[in-house]
């Protein structure tokens, strides 16, 4: 079996995995980082979004072996201890979540977006969330949260 070394949330981990192991399985099953979720099997829903080398990707559509040598950040690695990341804080403040299942992927997508878009319009935010499906919120408060979180990150 291949061996992978991936820096996950700042810590290097080395594991033997079957080549067919998806990155999301590696995170959830091998590392017990269950904050990253699986909501579909066609790469549509975005519940599994994590950052690989700083960029948002769908961890259900990436093999763990592809991430060998990379740095992965998951939702668990976003806050600084009890101090929330500004995007997390914005989701709480603006009620940008209900059941919470899509939320980790939503936040990880939003953080990457905010890094690249300092002052987005509502339409740009909605487009940026095209790959993240939420069934609870109607997106209204997620859009507000992303706007506020983006402003806070770039403020």
């Amino acid at each position: 079996m291949p061996t992978v070394t991936i820096t996950v949330n700042g810590k290097a981990v080395t594991r033997e995995v079957e080549a067919r192991t998806l990155l999301v399985q590696f995170l959830r099953e091998h590392l017990s980082l269950t904050g990253t979720h699986v909501g579909c099997d066609t790469s549509q829903c975005g519940a599994c979004v994590v950052h690989v080398d700083g960029q948002a990707i769908k961890s259900c559509t990436t093999l763990a072996v592809q991430a060998d040598g990379s740095a992965v950040t998951t939702i668990e690695g976003l806050a600084d201890g009890q101090t929330l990341h500004p995007m997390q804080e914005a989701f709480r403040e603006h009620h940008g979540l209900q059941c919470g299942f899509c939320t980790p992927g939503m936040i990880m997508t939003a953080v990457d977006f905010a890094k690249n878009n300092k002052n987005p319009t509502e339409a740009e935010i909605r487009q940026a969330l095209e790959g993240n499906i939420c069934r609870c919120t109607g997106y209204h408060n997620i859009v507000k949260a992303v706007a506020a979180g983006t402003a806070a990150m770039n403020g």
Binding site: T34, T36, H37, I75, L78, L84, Q88, F91, T103, P104
Partner: peptide
């Protein structure tokens, strides 16, 4: 009131059945 349950969901500490 901002939701009491949100901290665990926004930090990836929610506990769903598949977890």
């Amino acid at each position: 009131v901002r939701r009491k349950e949100d901290f665990r969901f926004i930090t990836g500490a929610g506990r769903y059945t598949d977890d």
